[in-house]
Computed example of a mutant assay.
Amino acid sequence: MTTILLEEAGPMLADLAKRVENGETIVVARDGKPVLDLVPHRPDETQRCTGIDWDAAYAYLRANGLDDPFPFVADDFDDPLPEDFLLRPLP
C-alpha cells in the first residue's frame, strides 16, 4: 500500500489510476493524515437485482411456519373510507 500527499496526487491521477487498475491500493493523505483510499472499482451488487425471488420468499415463510403471507384480507379492504374518517377523534 502506497501513501501519497494530496497535493502530489492531482497531477499524477492518470498514473495512479493505472496502478489502482492493476490492484494496488493507494492512500491519499493531507498534512500527513490519511484522507481517502484509491481502490479498484467493484460493481454495485444491487444493480444486478432482477426482481423479487418469490420462490425464496415463500421458502423463507414456510421455514418460519407461515404457509400464506396474507392469511386474512377483509372483504371491504379496498372500499373507500368514510368522508369524515380523518376528522373523527379516535375512540
Rank of each mutant, 00 (worst) to 15 (best):
M1I: 07
M1R: 11
T3Y: 05
L5F: 06
L6A: 12
E7K: 13
A9K: 01
M12R: 14
M12S: 10
L13E: 06
L13S: 07
A14T: 14
D15C: 00
D15H: 04
D15Q: 08
K18E: 13
K18W: 04
V20G: 01
E21A: 12
G23A: 05
E24P: 01
V28F: 03
A29I: 01
R30S: 08
D31E: 14
K33T: 08
P34T: 06
P34N: 10
V35F: 09
L36Q: 12
R42P: 00
P43G: 05
P43L: 07
P43N: 07
D44W: 11
T46V: 10
Q47S: 09
Q47D: 11
Q47Y: 07
R48K: 10
T50K: 14
T50S: 12
G51V: 04
I52W: 07
A56M: 04
A56Y: 04
A57H: 08
Y58A: 00
A59I: 03
A59Y: 03
A59C: 01
Y60G: 04
R62K: 15
R62L: 09
R62P: 01
N64A: 04
G65M: 09
D67F: 14
F70M: 13
V73H: 13
A74M: 07
D76L: 00
F77S: 07
D78F: 15
D78L: 14
D79T: 03
D79M: 02
E83Y: 05
L90P: 02
P91F: 04
P91Q: 07
